[in-house]
Amino acid sequence: MVHEAGNTKKARLGILMLDTRFPRVPGDVGNAATWPFPVRFGVVAGATPQAIVCEDISPFVDAFVAKGKELVAEGCTGIATTCGFLAPIRPRLADALGVPVAASALEQFAQISANLPPGACVGILTISKTSLTAQHLEAAGVAPDAPIAGMEGTGFADAILNNRESLDVPAARAEMVAVAEGLVRAHPEVGAVLLECTNMPPYAPDIAHATGRPVFSIVSYLRWFQVGLLPPRFGD
């Protein structure tokens, strides 16, 4: 379910969407109201959450490229994707599209790490720890020993990965907070939490409040990305 209101000719940022039907609540990457600037959405047919997170993404690369080319032709000067597990295809997308590509929220890892005090590290919250491989981490520049917690066994993961038509938002919030609290309890050295999944940002304020750590996500990443695509004017 994509909020088509986000599609505007003024958009510099094009967002490649997975083929989904679960609710895109405010704060979700696929809800146009999440963004304080125009965006254009493009759905990659057949690229379901299950296929991208848990299966081989190779068969979908050409489809991502084709949809990305459509967005560029429509005026987008930067492209993003909507799943942290797409980090491995970022170089291929950037080469084929000829514009900057932000493929995964995980690509913020190095910068966040550089901002933390000595002895602190970035902890990752992912929809599926079992599916997040060394290939994904290396492609996004994530340290191989980064603490990671997954949402396996939760209603949130079931709704997203199985592409349900409904999502219990209060329950998802409670699940997310519980897993994040477990992450920092097991790894007190975690100085910031990074959300791999682009459907997690609606719960970022609750995670930050519960853990006492700053929380970064696809929202923080693409707001930074957009400022480069269209620098704001001051004083005019």
Rank of each mutant, 00 (worst) to 15 (best):
P188V: 11
L18M: 14
P188F: 12
P49Q: 05
L194F: 00
C54Y: 15
L222S: 09
H209T: 15
A157I: 03
A80M: 11
P118Y: 03
A87T: 06
A208K: 04
D28C: 02
K129I: 09
L16I: 10
G182Q: 13
H187I: 05
I15W: 05
V2C: 06
I218K: 02
L194C: 00
P202Q: 02
P118E: 07
L161V: 06
H209F: 15
V227T: 13
A159M: 08
A45D: 09
V61D: 06
Q226L: 10
F37E: 11
A80Q: 11
A102T: 09
G30M: 07
S217F: 02
T211S: 10
P144R: 06
F109N: 01
V99E: 08
G75N: 07
V184K: 06
L97K: 04
T211L: 04
T34M: 03
T34R: 01
Q135D: 14
P202L: 02
I148M: 01
M151A: 12
L195P: 00
D28T: 03
I89S: 05
P91K: 05
G141P: 00
L18S: 02
V72Y: 15
V190A: 13
H209K: 15
E175I: 08
P36M: 10
A66N: 07
R164Q: 11
L229N: 00
W35I: 07
W224P: 11
Y221S: 10
D168Y: 10
L16G: 07
A204W: 02
A51S: 12
G150N: 05
F85D: 10
N7R: 06
N7I: 04
C121M: 10
E74R: 13
F85T: 09
G153V: 13
C54G: 14
A5L: 14
V190G: 10
